[in-house]
Design a protein around this nucleic acid. Sequence first.
DNA 1: TCGGTTCAGAGTATT
DNA 2: TCTGAACCGA
Length: 799
Amino acid sequence: MPDLLANLNPQQRAAVTLPAQHALILAGAGSGKTRVLTTRLAWLISTGQASPAAVLAVTFTNKAAKEMLTRISAMLPISTRGMWVGTFHGLCNRFLRTHHRDAALPQSFQILDSQDQLAAIKRVLRGLNVDDQKFPPRNVQYFINGEKEEGRRPDAAEVVDEYSRRMVDFYRAYEEQCQREGVVDFAELLLRSYELLQRNQPLREHYQARFRHILVDEFQDTNDLQYRWLKLLAGPQASLFAVGDDDQSIYAFRGANVGNMAAFERDYARDNLIKLEQNYRSHAHILNAANHLIRQNIRRLGKDLWTDAGEGEPVRIYESLTDSEEAQWLLEEIRSLIADGSSRSEIAILYRSNAQSRILEHALFSASVPYRVYGGLRFFERAEIKHALAYLRLLENPDDDTAFLRVVNLPARGIGARTLELLQDQARANGTSLYRAVAMVQGGASSKLAQFVALASRLRSQAQGLPLTEAIDNVIEGSGLIAFYKTEREGQDRIENLRELVNAAAAYLSENGIDRDVPASVGLANAAGTTATLLPRADLQDVVDAPPAPGAVQQVALSPLAGFLAHASLESGERQAGEGVDSIQMMTVHAAKGLEFDTVFVTGLEEGLFPHENSAAEVDGLEEERRLMYVAITRARRRLYMSFSQTRLLHGQTRYNLKSRFIDELPEQDLKWLTAKGRGRYDAYGSGYGGAQADAGYGGGRFGGQRNGGAFASRPVATRATSYAGTGAWREEGDGAIASRSPPRDARFRIGQGVAHARFGEGVVTGIEGSGEDARVQVKFAQHGSKWLALAIAKLDPV
DNA sequence: TCGGTTCAGAGTATT
DNA sequence: TCTGAACCGA
């Protein structure tokens, strides 16, 4: 297949054409990772080594999955519909629909997103009369998801104290509620698929025999359950092809375990580790900076990016006195870039946390520079859309109490909290859903409830004869949502969004090859579309190596409505608009992962902000921040700017920050300081820093004035110290006066340092005080919380 | 049931 | 400083 392999470098080619063995591809930023993954898949199919039905490719985001499918379609003359290419959750959803009986689920089970899940948990807690001050629902949610991601059901959860005993009780009650209502949350999709494969041998063997090649994207982002799921799915004849970059692992906080990469190499791919180190994105100065920075991380598999694209431009560093001045400088720089011919969409402004965007937006907005901020609400997360979906869910499953509660009084029908409490009591007493309990309650309000139930029931019977789009239109009108938003002051946008929901449904139907005129609630056992994508396609069936075990693959008849609802839960849709206009791209560094721009500004490079102060108390926290910085740097193709400010308004207070250690970790020869290096750290009025900004308002006024107080003007370092006195975090460079406590002489320990304790396990130093015999360190342990330990007594080893 | 007021908390986020 | 959630009075 010379076409497929053309223009691949030797490492890429080696990865693509690897024999059927487990392999780990360590793919650096901009090294053609997605290309290798998709070409590998296409190559396997086009050389006849695997049929389309015998490969499974899994990603984390729908965007990545879609991208992969698009590329495969372009490379191969086959239909990709029916191929197992999707997100972990999407594939598990498909699997559970197909085997819903074995999984003990209704065929049209609903999927709760995080918001729905939280609402469901609140309901559980209220039912148990739990004091939600003591047990905040968010914590319970965190606990439950954590347990599920560790593969533990309530019976297996560890109970060590009263607190965990209660948590496990809530977990159990929540599970019962979900089961009763026929709903699953995101983690449940995975866990239930995993358990089904594990306990059902014929089923497992069927899929193991089928999937000869399992390809995993962004492997460094997998959590423990996902990795276990992959290992279970990969049978003795299968090859696992994992692509990832441990240096870009930035999602530990949501359960990702970088350790999976090393584990995978050790257990599967000891002999097949391929590094893709040639970078096709950035010039050398930028790559040097990235390489140099990331080398400070201890625990990594190790690789260095290189390019033959030439030196390019040095990394520009800018220091400002205030955050608003930083924004002003940014604006001027952007203006001159645009004047020089840059397109706005090729300029990105990155920041560590969303709160930083405001002041930057303000500067751009005031100057009428078009910009687009990533993040925020997505289409299917909007309140009005969630309301409409809740009505639709009630049509599909009246026992869905989450949906019921969401819309029972929206638009207002005079059904208040008191009424609902009574209804919930009734439902609990009878072990039934709210919807069914309506018929059992007595009293004045019951007629209002009955009217609501009648409405839902009417909408349901109407939907049966209508195509999906018309059924949805009927629901948003008939429910009174449209009329409701007409009375709202800002309701026009919401009405437009509701109308857009009809279009989204039409798009869903056409993307899945479902006839537009099929009635919304009719199952599609033999029609094209939803069902067909759930089953191995008939024309692929003959190449499945082992025949399915009897009854292993059941007929699935998912209605267009049920399919659309699942789609809405699994794909939250586009981020908000601004598209189409050539605009500056603004986003967090996390959101920028996977993207690239000609010009990148990384802003707010200050201690406490980036690295973020909260990360100091996390195991591996600083290294993760550094990886985040690495991701930020490697987004830039040609021009990279980094800026930091001496002062910044945060939570309504001026904070005095030191420049980020990450700037000190960059190689000097690849940098170009736009302001005099190190100027502000010692003297705000220090010797000549260049640029027009010097005249723009650095005069005494700004510092001498009331705003920042005289203390800063006279002794900036001392004032800066105050913002850090509380945390004392990470002060390593010279100005030891900053720490409010005098640190122990013991040079082995620093704040942010990883340590190991015989009994408490691994932790991170978060505080140091005293000296000599009295030296104590505060350590936050992964398992046992935060403790002060006397160095003279405790046996602590640096990790 | 609705609207205003008060208060705590404020990091990154996909499915 | 700003936001969202909780709370209280009409």
